[in-house]
Amino acid sequence: MSLKDYIQQHPCIKRFAYRFLMHSVKTRPNWWIRPFQFLYIKRGKGSVIYGSVRRDITPFHPFVLGERSVIEDFCCINNAVGEVLIGNQTRIGLHNTIIGPVHIGNHVNLAQGVIASGLNHNYENVELTISQQGVSTSPITISDDVWIGANSVIAAGVTIGKHCVVGAGSVVTKSVPDYSVVVGNPAKVIKHYDFTTRKWLKNI
């Protein structure tokens, strides 16, 4: 049995480990953990994480940044409740927020102010405050060769297919098929690529 499995099976030890690693109010790694992030952050050759990026990155779940990928200034990256995996030659634009579980492919471009969160707060029990009910997660997958416009929101559980474009300001609540253009709130497919005619066709 691995150490991680042992901790998962013993709630008291799990709570102690969590409190040791995470600040109870700030809900981010404690100051004495952050200097050791280089031991568990996996980065590919030529990757860049700018100095102003908020790295709420814990050893609980994997964080991987692929070769020649960039996380630009003022982003927040959080893997406390799920892994964050970013492929090769991908750019996470200014002021993005990425909360796992999120899988981002190769050659992906996220413009400014994009939010992709695989986390939702539970709220169903009206006898408790929402903050007392914990969270649930559902992975986001952004496939290879995707462009997401500025200030878009990608909801938990969504898969965006290969070579898709998400228009600026869109709120994507449902999965998007390969080779599509989506816009709006909620986002809808307005174009798709037809391999027979080899043209982008408008959806009627």
Rank of each mutant, 00 (worst) to 15 (best):
I49P: 05
Y50P: 00
Y50T: 13
S52P: 04
V53E: 09
V53N: 07
R55N: 10
T58P: 07
T58C: 10
P62T: 06
F63W: 05
F63D: 01
L65W: 03
G66S: 04
E67C: 09
R68K: 15
S69I: 00
D73S: 12
D73F: 10
C75M: 05
C76A: 10
C76S: 13
A80V: 11
V81C: 11
V81R: 14
G82E: 07
G82I: 06
E83I: 04
E83Q: 15
V84Y: 01
V84F: 01
L85C: 09
I86W: 01
N88H: 14
I92T: 03
L94M: 14
I98H: 05
I98M: 04
I99F: 04
G100F: 10
G100C: 05
P101M: 06
P101L: 02
H103S: 12
I104D: 01
G105H: 06
N106S: 11
H107Y: 14
V108C: 07
N109W: 11
L110Q: 01
L110S: 02
A111R: 00
A111N: 09
Q112T: 12
Q112Y: 05
Q112W: 02
G113D: 10
I115T: 13
A116K: 00
A116Y: 01
S117M: 05
G118S: 01
L119R: 10
N120T: 13
H121Y: 14
H121I: 07
N122I: 10
Y123S: 11
Y123F: 15
E127G: 13
L128Y: 05
L128E: 13
T129P: 09
Q132E: 15
Q133A: 08
G134Y: 07
G134T: 08
G134N: 09
